[in-house]
Design a protein around this nucleic acid. Structure first.
Lengths: 104, 104
DNA sequence: CACAAGTATATCAAATATGATATAAATGAT
DNA sequence: ATCATTTATATCATATTTGATATACTTGTG
């Protein structure tokens, strides 16, 4: 993992630590993070096509800041919220499954 | 939704309420529950093929009771834990995506 | 430039999910 | 039927995730 990518994850709150510490992440932990980031990216794409973060937040009964965090892959956002957000944009289980299946 | 199915969900802690209250669940809420239940079922199937709940709990750094709840579709279990558990059984993102895509 | 709309960041109290522990119930082998 | 293994249920203190709020930053438009 290059330094730039490491810093990017750290800035989002992922406990990546140093490069050598990163090597201690199990494949499962790495995959989980990748799934979250894939959902984040996809959420942002979908949402931008039809509404603002504030509008999505309303549908979700959440808040604009939380949607921003979700879209930016912040570590404090659960997969659960990411999926609820995807559904609120109109995504189907098929589409969500696709996004996850693409990881790896 | 028939009465038997309703009771089943209530027993697991889902706030389904009466049948008429159930009708107030949005399609998104319903889909989210269905995704969780699909992951639960699949987790149980996968896990049973190769290990006990206690063994999976160790890999997960969780506990046997929590694995039991995960496999039984308990409402207190997050999608996050379900996915971590799937990964711990050796499931790939492809397989997890499949399970979710099958919902609906 | 000014101004508005949208997005990002910080903080925090409340809600929810967590692993641990104890223990009960179920399952299955002898 | 006994006994060991496995699974389910109950409780709980701790940790994480949450929506809310305030506010800063960015972007685009007049």
């Amino acid at each position: 993992m290059d330094e730039a990518k490491r810093k990017k994850l750290e800035d989002k709150g992922w406990k990546v630590g140093t490069v050598s510490e990163f090597l201690d992440l199990t494949p499962e932990e790495t995959t989980l993070i990748e799934i979250k980031l894939a959902l984040s990216r996809n959420l942002k794409e979908r949402r931008q096509k039809s509404m603002t973060q504030a509008e999505l937040a309303d549908k979700l009964h959440s808040s604009q800041p939380r949607v921003a965090k979700a879209e930016n892959g912040d570590a404090s956002v659960s997969i659960e919220l990411l999926i609820r957000a995807m559904l609120a944009t109109g995504a189907t289980p098929q589409e969500i499954g696709q996004v996850i299946a693409q990881v790896g």
